[in-house]
Design a protein around this nucleic acid. Structure first.
Lengths: 122, 122
DNA sequence: TCAGGCAGTTACTTTAAGGTTAGCGCTAAC
DNA sequence: GTTAGCGCTAACCTTAAAGTAACTGCCTGA
């Protein structure tokens, strides 16, 4: 329970840049669902309501909106495969999602650790 | 522009756990300002309105609320130093903030990269 | 004594994120 | 021909996050 810095001392300038960069990141991938949608697609393409089932609690509206957003930003691709006559839509991750690997895994690690911590507290 | 997974194939079970863990993390450190407040404190203690200046755009109300929240979760400590007769308050990071290092630096890296990318696009 | 800074708080408003419900056009199955 | 599933969308509503403005109590320095 003693004071500490985040590892090494940092200049004020670096600090400001970091604040801005993190702000930029959150602007794009912040929010309740975006990252989780990407994770849900990380083990292969999924169809719209496979995603809905995988992400317990998301509504069709939000899923639809977020998917469009993720498409626009180059994280995800929508594929229409019209086998025979039935419409079949799948979503898959694009290359650029891969750049989020560190973000996602560090959040995963931290979340896991934190939950363990608060569960053993009470 | 080809399909890809986030590195190695992952089981459905791992995928669900990841979705939940990231959800847990976002629940605590999500939002517009929390992480940025921690960054702003990463190069040393700061007073309330030093923080306000460092985080361009944050309002006193939000800063006050978020600081209370961060205190409650063990990231930050409020120190009252009553030198002579004047009230002097400082905020400093606690150990636990250190556990966010990877989260913050990966968001920093990604945000920096992404901004560079979209700036060279148009 | 009066202006100004510090560390907030209060009351109110706005914005944005997300949830709810219903339904549409299509197809396939019963 | 009715029911059910898919892939959504629209209209509407709620909640929560954040912003705005004003103000408080305390102290200091002019």
């Amino acid at each position: 329970m003693h004071e500490c810095n985040l590892k090494d001392p940092i200049s004020d300038q670096q600090c400001v840049e970091m604040i801005n960069a993190v702000g930029d990141a959150l602007y794009v991938i912040g929010g309740k669902w975006k990252l989780r949608i990407i994770i849900a697609l990380s083990n292969g393409k999924k169809r719209f309501n496979e995603l809905q089932k995988a992400l317990k609690g998301i509504s069709a509206r939000v899923l639809s909106n977020d998917l469009k957003d993720l498409e626009l930003n180059g994280f995800v691709r929508r594929i229409e495969r019209s086998e025979s006559t039935t419409l079949l839509v799948e979503y898959e991750l694009l290359e650029y999602s891969h750049s989020l690997m560190n973000v996602i895994s560090s959040l995963n690690d931290w979340g896991t650790m934190h939950k363990k911590k608060i569960m053993h507290k009470d």
